[in-house]
């Protein structure tokens, strides 16, 4: 399945639509506890570090 890296679907997932210096895309997502968190609540107050990843 190494060909996932050449699939259009996965290439799209790997391709950032943002560049340094551009406004960040603000979002709200669920937490494992069932709450929701919006990063917009923190932007402008302090830096926000995002770590994208999965289990595998």
């Amino acid at each position: 399945m190494e060909d996932v890296l050449s699939s259009a679907f996965h290439r799209d997932l790997m391709t950032a639509k943002l560049a340094p210096g551009e406004p960040a895309f603000l979002f709200e997502l669920p937490t494992p506890d069932g709450d929701r968190a919006a990063i917009g609540e923190f932007v402008g107050v302090r830096p926000v570090a995002l770590v994208f990843g999965s289990y595998t």
Partner: peptide, 8 residues
């Protein structure tokens, strides 16, 4: 997708 975060 927006951040191009995959795989990390």
């Amino acid at each position: 997708r927006r951040y191009g975060g995959w795989p990390d």
